[in-house]
Each structure stands twice: as C-alpha cells, then as structure tokens.
Simulated assay, not measured.
Amino acid sequence: MHWTVDRLEGDWAILECPDQQIVRLPRNQLPADLREGDLLQVTFTINHQATTRCRQQMNDRIDDFFTNP
C-alpha cells in the first residue's frame, strides 16, 4: 500500500491514501527527508504487548466501575 505526500504544512504532512482519503500526520513520525510527491510504503503490524496492556487496563477499569459504584 502506498500513500502519497500531497503537501507539507509546518509540522504536518498531508497524505493521500489509496482510497483518496486525506490523512494528516506529524512530520516527526515520518522520514526526515520527506518531500511533496513522495510515495510512502505503509505497513501495519500489531503491537501485541501494547494491545495486551491496553486490554488489561480497560478490564481493570470495568471491574473497578462495577465493584466500586
């Protein structure tokens, strides 16, 4: 999947997704040499540790809500 760098606006990069949606991302999360017109190769991976931690925190909050009304 490729996203196109439409333009750079200050600290933000405005990207066009393959489905033509526009996404705004902080430039500091992208390659430093990013330029308008560049194509970004986008790959998503699951962060299993963070997912487990987040789910546990949510379960803890739910348990706390029902045990401490």
Rank of each mutant, 00 (worst) to 15 (best):
R7G: 05
T4V: 05
I22F: 01
L34I: 06
D19I: 03
R53A: 07
V23M: 04
Q49T: 15
V23N: 02
T52L: 15
N68F: 10
N28S: 09
D33W: 09
W12S: 03
Q49W: 12
T52W: 12
I62P: 08
E16L: 07
G37F: 01
A50T: 13
N28I: 07
D63M: 07
R7E: 06
C17W: 06
A13W: 02
R24Q: 07
Q49F: 12
D60K: 06
D19M: 03
P31S: 12
T43D: 13
I62M: 14
Q29I: 15
L25P: 04
L39M: 05
W3V: 04
N47P: 09
E9G: 01
D11G: 09
Q49Y: 10
D11E: 12
A50W: 15
Q29D: 13
M1W: 13
Q56Y: 13
D63L: 09
D64F: 12
A32Q: 13
Q41W: 10
T4M: 03
R61F: 05
D38R: 00
M1L: 15
V5A: 02
N68E: 11
E16D: 04
D11H: 11
P69H: 13
E36L: 00
R35M: 05
I46F: 04
T4G: 04
T43F: 14
D60S: 03
P26N: 11
I22Y: 02
D19K: 07
E36A: 02
W3A: 10
R55Y: 15
W3E: 05
H48V: 07
Q49R: 15
Q21K: 09
A50D: 13
N68L: 10
L8A: 03
R53C: 02
E9W: 00
P26H: 08
E36C: 01
N47G: 10
L8Q: 01
D64W: 12
E36Q: 02
P31Q: 07
G10Q: 01
I46E: 05
N68Q: 13
A50E: 14
Q21D: 08
E9Q: 02
W12P: 00
L39Y: 08
A50Y: 14
G37C: 02
T43K: 15
D63I: 06
Q57T: 05
I14F: 00
D19C: 08
D11Q: 08
R55T: 15
R27W: 01
R35V: 04
N68D: 09
D19R: 09
L15S: 03
D64R: 12
A32F: 11
R7D: 03
E9C: 00
C54W: 12
V5N: 01
Q20I: 04
A50F: 13
Q29F: 15
Q56S: 15
Q21N: 10
C54K: 11
T4H: 05
T45Y: 11
I62N: 12
I14A: 00
T43Y: 14
F44Q: 04
E16R: 06
A50S: 13
P26V: 04
A50K: 14
N47Q: 10
R55V: 14
D6M: 06
C17D: 11
P18E: 08
Q29S: 15
V23H: 02
T4N: 04
Q49I: 13
I62D: 07
D33A: 12
C17N: 14
M1Y: 15
D38Y: 00
D11F: 07
R53L: 05
A32S: 14
R24I: 11
Q20T: 14
F44C: 04
E36S: 02
F65P: 06
N47C: 06
P69T: 08
L40K: 07
N28F: 08
E9N: 01
L34Y: 05
